[in-house]
């Protein structure tokens, strides 16, 4: 089994507080994986480590078995093909919806290339296509600051797709969405799996159930349980972590 994303024995603490304690995680190419866990379980720190925002104190993090992710920064990991969506939707508020997507398109990211970049018809087509996919085609010229919370979530997903990543790290995509939108998001993520590797961090159990995939439960910075949603919710330790104390 070859893991596209490989974490082994990762540790990280902040001022004495141990956020990650010996975390190991293997995600196959094309897999859809949900990660759940209570607050402070280390989910955000885990994503910070994968994307190079935070360096682990100990442990190995490898991408496609050869690239050491502990040595890259955020931009580096993005260029490798790791896309990240934040919990709170972050879009570039003063740019129009289409410019947001345009900025995310997979192009040369160097300073001088962007200075002299010309928008090609292919790019324009791709933008239109993505805007239709995230149902924002009618809003394309509006400043993204004017969008509703849910629309911003969709715009960010659109930007993520525009990057054409191999791995999508999605942090609580369902937050602030209507039930209908939530289900549509789950459907989109299921569609993406296979051609993309997708890791979803989520609180909403309905949503996780809808994803219908392997679930990893994090607790106190390490993996507590792994398996199907029914399997992990039958685990007494998991029940205790979620309901007990």
């Amino acid at each position: 089994m070859t893991a596209q994303l490989y974490l082994d024995g990762v540790e990280r603490s902040f001022d004495g507080f141990k956020a990650i304690t010996g975390l190991s995680l293997h995600v196959r190419k094309g897999e859809l994986r949900a990660i759940i866990g209570p607050n402070g379980a280390g989910k955000t720190t885990m994503m910070d480590i994968i994307t190079g925002k935070t360096r682990p104190d100990k442990g190995e993090v490898f991408w496609n078995e050869k690239v050491d992710l502990t040595k890259t920064d955020e931009a580096g990991s993005a260029r490798l093909g790791i896309g990240r969506k934040f919990q709170k939707p972050t879009v570039i508020e003063s740019l129009s919806v289409e410019d947001n997507i345009g900025l995310a398109l997979k192009t040369d990211r160097s300073v001088f290339a962007t200075l002299f970049a010309r928008q090609t018809p292919a790019h324009a087509d791709r933008i239109t296509e993505l805007l239709h996919l995230v149902r924002l085609a009618d809003e394309r010229a509006r400043p993204s600051a004017d969008l509703s919370h849910g629309q911003k979530q969709w715009l960010e997903i659109g930007m993520l797709l525009a990057q054409e990543p191999e791995l999508l790290l999605v942090d609580e995509p369902a937050a602030g969405m209507t039930d209908d939108e939530t289900m549509r998001t789950a459907e989109l993520l299921r569609d993406l799996a296979g051609t993309h590797t997708v890791i979803v961090v989520e609180h909403d159990m309905e949503f996780v159930r809808a994803l219908n995939c392997k679930v990893t439960v994090l607790h106190q910075g390490r993996v507590l349980a792994e398996g199907s949603i029914d399997h992990v919710s039958a685990n007494p330790e998991v029940v205790e972590v979620y309901l007990g104390r």
Binding site: I92, L95, A117
Partner: peptide, 26 residues
């Protein structure tokens, strides 16, 4: 230019711009 849009991205959401793959410092 496209670079100008990246600059606005840095101004409004520096972190987002980094995760889009732009080396902000450059």
């Amino acid at each position: 230019s496209q670079l100008g849009k990246v600059l606005i991205g840095i101004r409004d959401a520096e972190s987002r711009t980094r995760f889009l793959g732009y080396r902000v410092e450059g």
